[in-house]
């Protein structure tokens, strides 16, 4: 398809996609390869370091993130299928490594890091991936993708080109309540936030909640399953990979 400007894309696979939602990662590989790019995936990277970072343990976060930076040092483009981990690399690594020997490297990697949907639309200029998904869907914007990275239009542009897909916006643009360790430290608040989200999704009458962040979907799906709701969750990349 787009053989010009063939890139070597370094796919950053977050820990939860690796262990729990491999289909999302596989879909990203297949899509990027179909577009004519080559994909590499550093196997030795397991996590971006966000859990200790968000809990205030920045030193421990650096012991994880430092080696990650070294492994990404020569990457042409780093693509992440999660707004949350994307924000960690793009926005928080420069802060985490400010006034350390890796400060410049953190800025360099930050500048080359992309969230998956933004990469497709803004960098590759692609919106139509030839996908087909004949369902009524709604979209959950993960907060980090939405507010740290400012990504709102890209996933909608991509979904707009999916055949058979009926799109309904959620009435409320609110957090799903996951928030990493917050969901375990304050489960009652996290659950209440998730219930609000699920109720809003139910109001749309959608069959699927799509998101560009699997961690949010893990939380939403966890509640939906417990409630016995028929609504299903699916990562954006998986939808775009349905031919």
């Amino acid at each position: 398809m787009f053989r010009r400007n063939r890139m070597t894309i370094t796919l950053f696979i977050p820990c939860f996609i690796d262990a729990l939602f491999p289909r999302a990662g596989i879909s990203m590989v297949e899509i990027l390869e179909r577009l004519g790019h080559s994909v590499v995936c550093p196997e030795a990277i397991a996590c971006c370091g966000q859990p200790p970072f968000n809990s205030g343990y920045w030193e421990e976060a650096r012991t994880i993130a430092g080696p990650v930076l070294e492994k990404l040092a020569d990457a042409e483009a780093v693509v992440i299928g999660s707004g949350s981990c994307g924000a960690m690399l793009k926005n928080f690594y420069p802060e985490l490594f400010a006034n350390t020997p890796q400060a410049e490297l953190a800025k360099k990697v930050s500048a080359r890091t992309w969230e998956f949907s933004d990469f497709l639309v803004s960098k590759l200029g692609v919106t139509d991936l030839g996908a087909k998904f004949p369902h009524k869907v709604t979209f959950h914007d993960g907060c980090h993708g939405l507010r740290e990275l400012g990504i709102k239009a890209a996933p909608r542009a991509l979904l707009g080109k999916v055949r058979g897909l009926e799109f309904v916006e959620l009435m409320e643009e609110s957090c799903c309540g996951f928030g990493g360790t917050f969901s375990a430290k304050f489960p009652m608040i996290s659950t209440a936030m998730g219930e609000v989200k699920c109720a809003a999704a139910a109001e749309t009458g959608a069959d699927y909640i799509i998101s560009n962040d699997s961690s949010c979907l893990m939380h939403i799906q966890g509640l939906l399953s417990r409630q016995g709701s028929p609504i299903k969750t699916i990562h954006l990349a998986e939808v775009l990979n349905q031919q």
């Binding site: 968000n54 809990s55 907060c143 980090h144 939405l146 507010r147 740290e148 609110s174 957090c175 309540g177 996951f178 928030g179 990493g180 917050f182 969901s183 430290k185 304050f186 608040i189 996290s190 936030m193």
Partner: peptide, 12 residues
Amino acid sequence: SNASSLCGACTE
């Protein structure tokens, strides 16, 4: 400060 999902709606 821990009782937050850091969603950023406040900052916005």
